[in-house]
Amino acid sequence: MSRVSRRDLLKYSAAAAAMPMTSILPALANDKRVVFGTWGGDSERILRETMAVVAKERYGIEVVFDVGTPSARKTKLIAQASRPRNTMDIPWLVDSDMYQMSARKIVKNIVPADIPNYENLIEDFRTDYSVPNCYGALVLVYNNSVTPPASIKDLWRKEYAGQIGVTDLSYDKIIPMASVAFGGSTSNYAPGYEALLELKKNGVRVYASNEAVGAALKSGEVKIALMWKGRAYTWQQQGVPISYVTPSEGAYPTFFVMGVTSNTGVPELANQVLGAALDPEVQVAVARVIGQVPTVKNAKLPPDLEAGIGFSEADRAKFIKADHAYAAEKASEAREFWNQKFKG
């Protein structure tokens, strides 16, 4: 066996040390690469296994996932708004966040004709600047041992006092829901603030996460919750004794939407990836894994899953419509109300 000289060792060590340096130099032309900003966990995994595969096989595009919290992704987008080229080509955010990105011109308007399968997107879900690939909505979830609530307003009934659980991070939906139930609207939060203070007097538990609400429903710590339909379905499948119903005022939807950054270097490829996200098989796979409902008409869920997480046309027609401009204007006020007055 030949011995490695000290000179060779130094040479190999220098080469090894320089390896990570190659990535910080301007990328060699990799024309078919799209960076996709996303949540991690199951949502990233299922898009990696489905959407990225469709993009690769159908269009030869490599999708690179930039995983981070919504705040981190928004910070990156804003910090790069004036750069010649954004490192993120497609941000995936909830509709209210994407509205803010569009208002700042960080994402550009889409051209429907350039996006494969766009024609199957449900008309009501279309916006000028984003493509929703799935959605869910907050519904009323209740333990099978209690009288089922029928409306958001029912949560204020004395028989439910001290038995209601909500998720901390859902405050920006709970406030408009309360407003709608008590004579206000998604453009007038004042009645909601007042009503929520009454609910606080009755006793309401605020949990750090959706899963903590699930654990509380399982243990019987709470009997009623405002929760995403997909989560409630999953918990029901796991044996938690609950049922759920769309409130008579309407469910509050959240759309998971994709946009294309104004300074992307690969707009055509980004549109093709959006098309891959609208592929019916991709959407059904997403629904199976994260319980969010497809947004294209040609995606058919299995009947049991459709019954568990889906929304009928009548349900969709009654969805509480968010006023993103008003929500953005009142964001600080709503957060302060929730943290200081409602939780405090």
Partner: peptide
């Protein structure tokens, strides 16, 4: 790490945080 991890990569604490957004098993 949240802002500085490169696209296509993740760190262990970020992976745990992101997992907890969808599951708490």
């Amino acid at each position: 790490s949240l802002l500085l991890v490169q696209p296509g990569s993740t760190t262990f604490p970020i992976a745990v945080l992101q997992y907890l957004e969808f599951k708490m098993d």
